[in-house]
Design a protein around this nucleic acid. Structure first.
Lengths: 340, 340
DNA sequence: TTGTATGCGTTATCAG
DNA sequence: CTGATAACGCATACAA
C-alpha cells in the first residue's frame, strides 16, 4: 500500500525543488526539456494526481457545484440532476449531490458543510420542513457572503437569488382546462396541504380553470393530503363517497392511487372518469391505463440552473446584484387516461 | 456582500494573534475567560465558520464518504443511498453522491476527482460500461493507495475490497421456484445481456430453479435485452409468438412491460400468466395488477456498506488487509401478479 | 534554468 | 495566558 504521492515526494526523489516539479508538470517552458520529461515520466510512473483539497485552498475555488434536493427517490429531481450534470461537466465542473430528506436540520447541515469551502455555488430545492419553518437564514447568509445560489422548483420569495421555476399554476390550469374541454364537469382535486408551495400553486391553477369555465368551486371535491407516504386509504375512501367525472392530482402518486380507486369502483377510464396527474415520471408512463400528465421538463430546468450558476461563478467580479427568475413551461403529455 | 470571515480577520479586528483566536474558539482553557468570550461573541456576530477545505488539508481527512452510482434515476440506488446516509450521518460523516450515468469515462473522472482529496472513502456500484470494459484501474489504484472502497450490487471479482451483494441467483431462483410451485411450467425469462453481472446471476437462478424441477431449458423462452431504455416493442413482439404461463423478469421495467403485453393478448394475470419481477420499487407496487417481486433490501445494503467503510476508515492503522463480502438476502414480496 | 519565499486557513507545538 | 512558527500540498512572484 504505497502512500499517495505529492510534489514533495517527487522533488525529493529527483533531488530538485518542489517548484521545479510543479512547473515541469504544468509544462512550463522555463524548465528544461530534460527535467520536464524526467519529472513527467516519474509522475506518471507513480500515478501522481494533484491534491484537489490543496488546489481548492490555494485557488479559493473548487470547481464543484453542490446540489441539494429534498429527496433522491424522486423522478423529477433525478431528471433535474441529469440536466445539471450535463451542463456542469461540459464546463469543467464537478457536481455533488446531497439530499435533505425534507428535513430542515439536514438541509442546514449539508448546506453549511458545503458552503464552508467544499463547493463554489449551490443549486437547491428547498426542503418541506424548511418551507414550513420559513427559516432561510442558512441560505440568505451564504448568499450574502458572496456564494451564488440558484433555487429551483421549491423556492421561497424571501430569498434573493436566481430561480428556476415551473409555471405550476399555468400547468395545472392547462390540465384542468383539458379535463373540462373533453367534457368533465365535476373534477376532484387531490392536492397537498397549503404550505407546500407547488401544491398550492397547482391548486390555484385548478381554481382558475374552473373559474374560466364559470363553474362554481365545490369544496367537497377537494382533498388536501398531509401524509404523502400513507394516503392510499384516504384517497380511496374520499373517492368512494363522491360524484365526479374527472380527477386532477398534483403529483403522480395521487394520480395512480386515484386510478386504482376508480377502477375498484368499476368506473371506466377515461369514459366515466378522466384523470390527469402532475409530473411525468415512470408511474404515469407505465400505469394502466397510462396517465395523461403535466410534464415539467426537469432536464431543461437542471440545465438552465447550471447555466445560471456557472455564469454567476465566472462573472463574479462585478458586484451588480441582479437576479433572474426563469419560468419553465410545462407540457401536457396526452395518454390514455383522458379522451381525445 | 461581506466576505467570508476567517480566523485572520477576527484576529486582526480584535488585535490578538490567530492562534489565540483558534484556541479561544475551541474553548481551550489556556485562554482567559475574558478573551474567550470576546472572541466567541465576535465570531458568532460575524457568523464565522471554519473552512472545511483548510481543515481537510490539515487533518488529511475530510469526513466525507463519496458514493458513486450508475444512475440516480433508480429506486434501488436511491434506497441504498438512504441507508448510507443514515449510518454516515450518525457517525458524523457527510455523504456526497455522484452518478456515472453508466459511463466509464464519467466514472473514472468522478472517481479520480473525489479520490484526490475530496473524500475519505468510496461506496461504489460499478457502471455498465466499466463492467463491459473490465477496466478497473481507477478503482484498484485508489485502493492500493490506501483509500478504502466498498463495492455494492454491481461488483467485480478482480477488485479486492469489501463488497455488499445481493444474492441475486438465490433471489431469482426463489422467485422462479414460486412460479413453478403455483403451477407455471413454461416460464419466460426477460433478462439483460450477459456482461451485466446482476442480470447474469439472476439468469443463473432461473436456470437452477428449472433444473430443480427437472424441466428442460427452452432457449426460445429467453430474451436477452440489450437496450433497456427502448425495449417495449421488443418485449411485445417476443411475447406475441410464444406459448407461456409464467414470466420472470430481472428488473421492474421488464416486468411491467411484460404485464402490459400480456394484457394486450387478453390473457389474465395471474391465472393465465403469472409474473414476478426483480427490485421492489414504485412500479411494482403501483402497477395493475400489483407485481409480485424480489425485494433487495436496499436500505439495509446501504447501511451495511457505510458501516463497513466507516469501520475501515477508523481502524486504518493496522495494515491487515482483510476483505469481507456480505450477502444480503432477498425477500419475495407477494402481490397480485401471482397466485396463492 | 532552477530554487526560495510566501500564502491559501487551520491547528499543534513550543516558546515567551 | 498569549503568540510565533511550522505544517498540510500546491502555485507563483521573485531571486539567483
Amino acid at each position: 500500500m504505497r502512500q499517495k504521492i505529492t510534489l514533495k515526494h517527487i522533488a525529493k526523489e529527483l533531488d530538485i525543488s518542489i517548484s521545479t516539479v510543479s512547473k515541469a508538470l504544468k509544462g512550463n517552458k522555463e524548465i528544461s526539456e530534460d527535467t520536464r520529461l524526467k519529472v513527467k515520466a516519474f509522475a506518471k510512473l507513480y500515478n501522481y494526481k494533484p491534491n484537489n483539497i490543496a488546489l481548492s485552498l490555494k485557488n479559493r475555488k473548487t470547481k464543484t457545484i453542490a446540489v441539494i434536493i429534498p429527496e433522491i427517490l424522486h423522478h423529477f429531481f433525478a431528471k433535474v440532476i441529469r440536466g445539471i450534470e450535463r451542463v456542469a461537466n461540459k464546463n469543467g465542473y464537478q457536481v455533488i449531490i446531497c439530499s435533505s430528506n425534507n428535513s430542515f436540520d439536514r438541509e442546514v447541515i449539508n448546506f453549511e458543510m458545503l458552503a464552508s469551502g467544499s463547493a463554489d455555488g449551490f443549486i437547491l430545492s428547498i426542503a418541506k420542513e424548511t418551507l414550513q419553518n420559513q427559516d432561510y437564514h442558512h441560505i440568505t447568509e451564504t448568499i450574502s457572503q458572496g456564494m451564488p445560489v440558484v433555487l429551483f422548483d421549491r423556492v421561497a420569495d424571501g430569498i434573493f437569488c436566481d430561480k428556476i421555476i415551473v409555471d405550476d399554476t399555468r400547468g395545472a390550469q392547462d390540465a384542468v382546462m383539458h379535463l373540462l374541454a373533453q367534457g368533465s364537469r365535476r373534477i376532484v382535486l387531490l392536492t397537498t396541504v397549503d404550505y407546500i408551495n407547488v401544491g398550492n400553486l397547482r391548486t390555484q391553477g385548478y381554481l382558475r380553470a374552473l373559474k374560466a369555465y364559470d363553474l362554481e368551486i365545490d369544496e367537497t371535491l377537494i382533498l388536501k393530503i398531509e401524509d404523502v407516504d400513507n394516503c392510499e386509504g384516504e384517497i380511496l375512501s374520499f373517492l368512494e363517497e363522491k360524484e365526479f367525472d374527472g380527477i386532477f392530482a398534483v403529483n403522480e402518486l395521487f394520480a395512480v392511487l386515484a386510478t386504482k380507486a376508480v377502477r375498484l369502483q368499476n368506473k371506466s377510464i377515461p369514459d366515466d372518469v378522466a384523470i390527469i396527474g402532475f409530473s411525468d415520471g415512470l408511474l404515469s408512463k407505465h400505469a394502466s391505463p397510462t396517465l395523461t400528465t403535466v410534464s415539467q421538463h426537469g432536464e431543461q430546468m437542471g440545465e438552465k440552473a447550471a447555466e445560471l450558476l456557472i455564469h454567476k461563478l465566472e462573472n463574479q467580479q462585478q458586484g451588480l446584484e441582479e437576479y433572474r427568475t426563469i419560468i419553465i413551461d410545462t407540457e401536457l403529455i396526452h395518454r390514455a387516461s383522458t379522451r381525445e
